[in-house]
Write a protein that binds this DNA or RNA. Structure first.
Lengths: 210, 210
DNA sequence: TCAACAATAGACCGATCAGTCTATTTTTAT
DNA sequence: ATAAAAATAGACTGATCGGTCTATTGTTGA
């Protein structure tokens, strides 16, 4: 608990992070950020130079949240790797419960920016790789038979939980994701396919939709 | 296969749907839609009245895609309910493989609009409920012990697959989601918790992150 | 005390946006 | 063939945006 006054830089960063997620990046004007931060217009440009750089700084802080989870919070738990994987979903739940949770700034930013050749997507994918890599290390420790597939499954339900929580504005998505993670872990060493055969051939005929 | 020429209305709708997803809604100007549609400026306003109404029309077409899957494609398959659930992920994969797939317009729209008191979120949530309801009916047919939880799990991995496919631009997310769905279905009648106890208490201590 | 710096308010600029309007051409139906 | 309807190009408007600039006020450290 530092008693230090929040710096101008911090005030801008926090307001931008909140508004970019709550209202969208394009929809959030510089003026609104300045109002919420309680900071003068020129200060934004002396500290960050542009709205784009401010967004990059917001990306960094969001990535640091994830790195903090994987590099400090989860390793501090005295439990098995499998339990650490499940504990990740408790961290997600705490995140979703915050009053100013409005989705992941990476996902939201990608959603509202050009998907071909845009720096936003490149930055988001780079950070995503770093996060998935840490998740993969955790899965590796758990002794999964096919760690890559398990990692991809877990990454998918993490993203699903974030989006579900954003859209429904309900932190329960983390709990559902945790239950799903338990299913994945329970099936980790079982046979890779269902008793009944695949239906992928029967499905192919059913496609002519708009 | 109709040989009918595409109407002005359709051309606008298709261009808008593609651009809203590929580049974002705010980032897509009217002029760009008109260029891609090959349509005059005034035609947009005679047919739709405003950019907002055009977005609503795009929402309708995307919802109809889902309704077509649940109400026509999947019921047409001669297989068990469980297999129909899995077949949904094959439909998703076909969707992701389209060259102009850039995410779900509902998710993307929510991501870039105000999350408190905005019509965009309300419309998206309404359609989401209708889709989840159809998914729930399918799960009910499969004889799941706890159909509500299973439905929420499946809904979550569907959203996860869509976002993963959007961010990574890789249709393989549908396959991972299908494998996860198989895990969920396989665990459907098993005991609801892992052999080892929960770690939720041990996790609570690890939270002070930014 | 006073100079160097940081932050302030707010006018201002050029660009872009959604939407309107006019005048012209093309299509359609009879 | 011709009149009505639909679509066209493109100029135009008012509002908003990101970013710059000036002038003033606090704040800090020697």
């Amino acid at each position: 608990m530092k008693a230090t006054r929040k710096s101008t830089e911090e005030k801008l960063l926090l307001a931008a992070r909140r508004l970019f997620c709550r209202a969208g990046i394009h929809a959030t004007g510089i003026t609104r950020i300045l109002e919420e931060a309680g900071v003068a217009r020129a200060s934004l440009y002396t500290h960050y130079g542009s709205k784009e750089n401010l967004l990059k700084a917001v990306f960094d802080t969001e990535a640091n949240m994830w790195f903090h989870w994987f590099d400090l919070d989860l390793p501090g738990l005295e439990c098995s790797a499998r339990e650490r994987i499940l504990a990740l979903f408790d961290l997600l739940e705490k995140w979703f419960e915050k009053e100013d949770f409005f989705g992941c700034v990476f996902i939201n930013a990608v959603a509202e920016h050009e998907k071909d050749s845009a720096w936003v997507k490149d930055v988001a994918v780079t950070y995503r790789d770093q996060i998935i890599s840490r998740l993969g290390a955790l899965v590796g420790e758990s002794g999964a038979k096919d760690p890559d597939i398990v990692t991809q499954k877990l990454g998918l339900i993490i993203e699903g939980a974030i989006v579900t929580a954003m859209v429904t504005q309900n932190s329960q998505a983390a709990h559902i994701a945790r239950l799903t993670a338990e299913d994945i872990l329970r099936c980790m060493e079982c046979s890779p396919s269902l008793p009944e055969g695949s239906v992928s051939s029967a499905t192919a005929a059913a496609m002519e939709s708009a």
